[in-house]
Amino acid sequence: MADTVQSWISVPDTAAPPVKKKGFQKFVRRRSTIAFLMCAPLIAVVVGLVIYPAFYSIYLSMLNKAQTRFIGLGNFTWLMSRDVFWMVVWQSAIFALSAVFFKALIGLITAHLINNLPDKGQRKWRGMLLVPWVIPLALSTLGWWWMFDPTHSAFNWLLKGLGFNEIAWLSQPYWARFSVILVNVWYGAPFFLIMYLAALKSVPDQLYEAAAIDGANAWQKFVHITLPMMRNIMAITILFSLIVTFANFDIVQIMTAGGPRNTTHVFATYSFLTGIRSGDLPLGSAVSLFMLPILAISAIFILRGVRKRGREIG
């Protein structure tokens, strides 16, 4: 026994001294180095296609039209003195807020409906309802445009057939705004549906069972269990959608190109008009950068709420 113990203890003494790895090899084999190397292509893409263009855009927005002179915030102050620009700000807000509200509402209702379907039928409905979201947006918007076509609108054909008056879908400012918001809601609601459905699936059944024992009705279960459990997912989904909707270009450009009378322009289409069509890239950059503070402020508030709730749950 004593021998055994002695030999066991003596192992370190008899073992070969560890080989000291060279510095570079050690550096390469470090977990953090490997992680960095594996992320490097992604970092390169983000730097090249996101960070560099973003900073270049900021730089561009501070130049004169010919890009020969630094004018500081001249483009921004000029924009702020224009009525059309404030109309664009107002319209972008109406477009994004109303579209996100309806997308969230429709997403929530359909997610609940699908969640309450038997498992067997759910997959089909999920697939069908996701179709608007997976069709390329430019293509589906073109389809919508044909239905709203100023002269040969399919909807007007239907309305006429039913004995109603035709509607000037794209030539009357209010109807044109309605039309572009409608298409955005149609396209974006499935994203909310899928996110909310995932959130609903993650709510433990035991909570509902406990509530049922306590005599809670469906509404009380929704308000006191479902909503609190979904709040973080809802907040992140709304934030993500708000960013995408604020920056939307395709729908407005294809359907109305900002008309009639500039009444449907959003930041992206107005930026295209001033930057590319009118050949004033610095001004176009300044228009698009106006979105930044609006989205940054909403992101700060929403993410702060998410973190706060995360800490409460934790």
């Binding site: 002269t151 000037a168 030539s171 190109a257 008309g259 009639p260």
Partner: peptide, 10 residues
């Protein structure tokens, strides 16, 4: 009335 919404193909 739709002339206000016409593009170049309208």
């Amino acid at each position: 009335p739709e002339v206000y919404a016409w593009d170049d193909a309208g």
